[in-house]
């Protein structure tokens, strides 16, 4: 079956199928919405970002349920109580899940896939961590449960962003 048949008009089209450009030229108004924001990182996340600069990943402990919350929060959403303690994590973890993406953020196709996923951190409750890239690993070698470690940018290049971690790679030792 040809592509045009597969993605062609619906079986019961009403009226004539119009080409987008043909229609837009007479019926559409184009505009941009110039809105800019300065988001507060927040009490907990500001400290988290600050520690990323130092090459550390930190969590926040809830004294009631004993969970170490990563990303850190100043309150535990389950116990609805304040968290009480900063906890330094080793930074290592395992691949919780992943995707091999052939599309970028704007849905453009890309040739070299982005390896992305979530990391469940050692020292945090099961399944708890953050989303990040994977590197120094072939797509076909990436597996759920694979032990990984962060690869940091050089200290002078860190700015207090999640991008201070370049990516996570298979643990070396």
């Amino acid at each position: 079956m040809s592509k045009s048949q597969k993605f062609g008009p619906p079986l019961n089209p009403r009226g004539r199928r119009l080409e987008a450009k043909e229609l837009e030229s007479i019926t559409h108004v184009r505009a941009k919405t110039p809105a800019k924001y300065a988001w507060a990182a927040g009490t907990a996340m500001s400290r988290f970002l600050e520690e990323l600069k130092n090459g550390k990943i930190i969590g926040r402990k809830c004294a009631r349920c004993n969970r170490v919350l990563v990303p850190p929060r100043m309150f535990c959403e389950r116990c609805f109580a304040p968290t009480t303690e900063w906890v330094y994590l080793p930074g290592t973890g395992v691949v919780e899940t992943f995707s091999i993406s052939y599309i970028d953020t704007n849905a453009n196709r890309i040739k070299e896939p982005i390896l992305v996923g979530t990391i469940a951190f050692d020292g945090a409750p099961p399944h708890c961590g953050i989303m990040h890239y994977f590197g120094e690993v072939k797509p076909e070698e990436l597996k759920i449960g694979m032990p990984v470690e962060p690869v940091w940018k050089p200290k002078e290049e860190r700015v207090g962003s999640v991008l201070d971690i370049k990516y996570f790679r298979p643990r070396q030792k």
């Binding site: 988001w39 919780e96 995707s99 599309i103 970028d104 953020t105 992305v116 989303m131």
Partner: peptide
């Protein structure tokens, strides 16, 4: 905006990750 957007995500990613899991 703080944790996820710097990674330039595509919404399909989270579904792909969920499906993989």
């Amino acid at each position: 905006p703080i944790l996820d957007r710097p990674l330039k995500p595509n919404l399909v990613w989270i579904f792909a990750m969920e499906m993989q899991r």
